[in-house]
Design a protein around this nucleic acid. Sequence first.
DNA 1: GCCAAGTTTGGCATTTTTGTCAAGTATTGG
DNA 2: CCAATACTTGACAAAAATGCCAAACTTGGC
Lengths: 100, 100
Amino acid sequence: MISTLSTHKQVQIIKALAHPARLEIVQALVTREHSVSELQTIVGGDLSTVSKHLTQMRKAGWIDCKKHGQHVHYRLVCKCLPEFLECVENIGTNRSTCDC
Amino acid sequence: MISTLSTHKQVQIIKALAHPARLEIVQALVTREHSVSELQTIVGGDLSTVSKHLTQMRKAGWIDCKKHGQHVHYRLVCKCLPEFLECVENIGTNRSTCDC
DNA sequence: GCCAAGTTTGGCATTTTTGTCAAGTATTGG
DNA sequence: CCAATACTTGACAAAAATGCCAAACTTGGC
């Protein structure tokens, strides 16, 4: 299982989720798409900060967006996020011999 | 699928792999365990730097270690790493409609 | 066209992460 | 016990990430 991606690209993708606000955002997007201001109410902070988080995750490839009037709707691109997070869950709950 | 872990803990786990050297290290550990100096020959840089990367990943829960004479052998704790990386692979190869 | 709402971008100070050197701790072989 | 090998820890400078403000941009309604 050798990656076709450069290490740098893999790191970019992983790093895109390695932040509390960004993690909360993708978790919110599992359910359904959201506009930037909706996501702001979830994660708090400045709207411009939220926008930058979204840009970073979009460039990494986790999400994409579509204009919908004045709003921009962001949504998850890949359905594998839950499996990704399940692995994180296994690590965090100390299942050393997990058979995930 | 609501996490039992705090966001902070999840981020700590993800962040532990969000670095080129650390990613190369865990990928090397998929095959078999390695000592710190073996890992140094793979990722380069100072031995103390490698040691610190290992400490960070151990605290996150990805790896553990055992003393073996003068050497310290590090190994992966969880077998789910390949699935984790496969998700990264899917994102990076732009399979927007991936069914992973 | 003009204004307001929603979003993005630029600039910059603050914080966090990183990497190296030096010093410290263990363990083994002689 | 001594010295060498393997690793860890502390301190600190350099680099990267973060967050906020202000300004710019875009779209829809009047």
